[in-house]
């Protein structure tokens, strides 16, 4: 009950809840119009976008007390893994889409 109360009475939490609801609809709207040729790159691109979790890792890392080695090491690991997700995700997606691009240019030439 405490939780529900908090959800609706605290303006900051309520704002976040609104963003969640709107984003859900936005996500559905954007995706339902994708041709199946682009499903794999899209999945890969979405995969890179959820790498935004890296921001949480950076905050955790930056707030860790400099003598708490467990937190530092776990935080460091989180930053590395998050970066892998972001950078790897975008690069792989770009590689897939590059092939579509290459072909288009080839046609024009």
């Amino acid at each position: 009950m405490d939780f529900l109360n908090n959800l609706f009475s605290d303006p900051a939490t309520y704002r976040l809840l609104t963003i969640v609801i709107l984003s859900i609809f936005l996500g559905i709207e954007v995706i339902s119009r994708v041709p199946s040729v682009l499903h794999t790159p899209l999945m890969s691109g979405a995969n890179a976008i959820h790498g935004v979790v890296i921001i949480g890792a950076i905050i955790v890392m930056g707030q860790a007390p400099s003598d708490d080695y467990v937190a530092l090491i776990l935080g460091f690991l989180a930053v590395v893994l998050g970066t892998l997700n972001v950078v790897g995700g975008f690069v792989v997606t770009d590689r897939m889409l590059e092939m579509f691009d290459k072909k288009k240019k080839g046609k024009k030439a």
Binding site: I19, V20, S23, G27, H39, L42, H50, V52, V53, I55
Partner: peptide, 17 residues
């Protein structure tokens, strides 16, 4: 907000896919 939008967008888009 950016973690929230990014995460939920992928969450709902991934579910639809």
């Amino acid at each position: 907000p950016v973690m929230l939008t990014g995460g939920i967008l992928v969450g709902s888009a991934g579910t639809i896919l």
